[in-house]
Design a protein around this nucleic acid. Structure first.
Length: 433
RNA sequence: UCCGCAGUAGCUCAAUGGUAGAGCGGGUGGCUGUUAACCACUAGGUUGGGGGUUCAAGUCCCUCCUGCGGAGCCA
């Protein structure tokens, strides 16, 4: 009799039926003439029972050979059983090994981080990693949905670039037919021309930073979403940041409840972030507040990781820190008309110590100002001719921000280190697997 | 690049300067309801590399390597 092949997501519709499933042996236990096989198929887990008196010798011999992560095709009758995790179990009568798995290296007990990262390709098979990858997938979907449902056009910015985008970070250099080329650290400069073309645009792709950062908040390859909007000015940018974040957080809470529960995420700590407004604090006031709290920080300094955490912990939702000193920020930012030593820049700090998840600004529309800034930052003007063209041919006010996907996902999942928020993390000293 | 911590069995970790151990995983056997099952037996080591101190070094010292955490920089 040919039995339907189903997945563990479809169990309820096939109760008391004869079915076939394919998957991997997550775990197995033996108890005399009984074998409990926990099958994993990417959708869930199903306990399968092989009972010696009720199966053929061949099936029994096969069951005896099962090891962790053996891939199998298993058939039998699906029954509801309170003793089984998940509520259903399969009374197996036929079992085929599709691929053996001798001495699977990941055990049921704890492993160290270095070992797990070296086995990242296998680590992805664990329950916790499934949950994180699904949250990441859902976050990417929600982000694209947010922008595309609001008439933004997705513009893919180049990854190979001829020069530094912002002239600040260290870039990965590669050989481009004998010429130096660099892996992009930001799509923004390429997005601004697209905003002049299509008004509301965003890019969402990988970016690269060659800084030798060794912290839980840094990757050398990470994904960033960057909207850029024509006619948007600073106050509108702040509104966009909080509307975007609150909307995406809401969707994660709606759609990833099961995964967040598996990750033991206290979602009550995310609830406040689903509603606006978010607190906004001027850079100068933030410095004063930090000094009150006993920080060794002066006006003109950038925030350290601890300062960010301290500041963010004053609020139950992300806080927008505004109007940074211009010389802390990139060359293209618009100076505050009320105080030209400040830039119309915003950093959004996530709660619970997850740090800066968004950095944005209104961009300078003035050719003269940008020419001055490029000189001041020691950047080669030739490399930016095309960028300056935007201020020559119909210059326009515009603004945008960038959000690091992994920092956002880490915050949603409540995981301490960015390396778990991306399938194959690239870190200083780690390019494998 | 700088500061701090670590490296012992396949994995996670013990071991006053004095005979290198346990749990998990592997192997063999037992058990008809296990939930990271349990029980018994068993195999498994150049203690990251090199040098030094000492009667004696996993342990103390120097050095290199690797990893982790943090700083700087940033999302």
């Amino acid at each position: 009799m040919k039995r339907p092949v189903i997945t563990i997501a479809q169990l309820a519709a096939h109760a008391d039926q004869e079915v076939t499933l394919r998957g991997w042996v997550y775990n197995w236990r033996k108890k005399g003439k009984l074998r409990f096989v926990i099958l994993r198929d990417g959708f869930g887990y199903l306990q399968c029972i092989v009972f010696r008196p009720e199966v053929s010798d061949e099936t029994w011999e096969t069951a005896v050979e099962l090891t962790q992560e053996t891939s199998v095709e298993i058939s039998g009758k699906l029954v509801a059983d309170e003793r089984a995790p998940g509520g259903y179990e399969l009374k197996a009568d036929d079992l085929k090994i599709l691929g053996t798995s001798p001495e699977y290296p990941l055990g049921k007990k704890d492993h160290g981080v270095d070992f797990l990262l070296n086995k990242r390709h296998l680590w992805l098979r664990s329950k916790r990693q499934h949950a994180i990858m699904r949250v990441r997938s859902e976050a990417q979907f929600a982000i694209r949905e947010y922008f595309q449902s609001r008439d933004y056009t997705l513009i893919d910015s180049p990854i190979l670039t001829p020069a530094a985008c912002e002239g600040t970070s260290t870039l990965f250099e590669t050989d481009y037919f004998g010429e130096p080329a660099f892996l992009s650290q930001s799509g923004q400069l390429y997005l601004e021309p697209a905003a002049a073309a299509l008004s509301k645009v965003f890019c969402f792709g990988p970016t690269f930073r060659a800084e030798k950062s060794k912290t839980r908040r840094h990757l050398t390859e990470f994904w960033m979403v960057e909207p850029e909007v024509a006619w948007l000015q600073f106050d509108g940018l702040l509104d966009l940041c909080e509307d975007f974040l609150s909307e995406v957080v809401s969707r994660i809470l709606d759609r990833c409840a099961v995964d967040l529960e598996r990750l033991e995420r206290d979602t009550s700590k995310l609830e406040a972030s689903t509603s606006t407004p978010y607190p906004r604090i001027d850079y100068g006031d933030a410095i004063n507040k930090l000094k009150e709290l006993g920080c060794q920080i002066e006006h003109g300094d950038d925030f350290g990781g601890d300062d960010e955490t301290l500041l963010a912990n004053l609020y139950d939702r992300p806080v927008l820190v505004t109007r940074y000193p211009a010389d802390l920020k990139a060359f293209y930012m618009q100076p505050d008309p009320k105080d030209p030593t400040r830039a119309l820049a915003v950093d959004v700090l996530a709660p619970e110590g997850y740090g800066e998840i968004i950095g944005g600004s209104e961009r300078s529309a003035s050719l003269e100002h940008l020419e001055k800034q490029i000189k001041l930052h020691g950047l080669p003007r030739e490399a930016f001719e095309w960028y300056l063209d935007l201020r020559t041919y119909g210059s326009f006010p515009h603004a945008g921000f960038g959000m690091g996907l992994e920092r956002f996902v880490s915050w949603m999942c409540g995981i301490p280190h960015l390396r778990e928020a991306i399938p194959y993390p690239r870190l200083i000293n780690r390019l494998y697997p």
